[in-house]
Amino acid sequence: MLESRNIVKKFGSKAAVDGITVRFEPGHVYAMLGPNGSGKTTWMKMAAGLIKPTAGEMLFGGRPVDLESRKEIAYMSTEPYFYAWMTVKDVGKYYADFFPDFSYDRYLRLLERMELTEGLKTPELSSGMMAKLKIAVTLARDAKVWMLDEPFNGIDLLARDEIRRSILEFAADDRVLILSSHLVEEMEAIADRAVFIKEGRLAEEDDLEELRDSRGVSMADRYRAIYGRVEVEA
């Protein structure tokens, strides 16, 4: 459904993504893994159409990503990006104005679950609340592909459960969910596939249950093996 072919993005002379060929199929929840700076975010931004590749192709349904694909691919960035004048309600109205697949009712349900109210002003939100708001507004889109960059960052334990719950609620046979996180343990049970990115390249792709079934190996084990001495945060 979403694939990149030998895609490259250079910033100056440094390649942030250095020739990644990878394919994401509907019906799966993918964990996209790699330390900071490995190229995950740049890859996602190219899929979202925010960054133009230096070389290679990013395809959605076999066609290069464009304005049409933006209607079906929902991207949530790590950092907050709402305008400073916006309340939680304004954020929802903005999405409703621009994304045909956005449902305000679904947004309200998600807000309630995340314990947010429409009247809150976005600049006054704590980082945890902001993270929850980003998730709520992104998942309120009935997208074909969701790409959530670090959805568990800055979120307390209980809210993480709610986020997992919401993600699982919207995962479906005809949808793709891509979660990038360095909190590997958070994703062991909800993802069924893992894509490891290392230094701008695809290092490995695994079916997680297959990995556990045949080798008794966890995603965290593979992470340690691929990235060597890099610490895995709990």
Binding site: A48, G49, L50, E68, Y75, S77, Y81, Y83, F98, F99
Partner: peptide, 8 residues
């Protein structure tokens, strides 16, 4: 910038 360039 995402607010604008993410939209179709």
């Amino acid at each position: 910038s995402y607010m604008l360039f993410m939209t179709p």
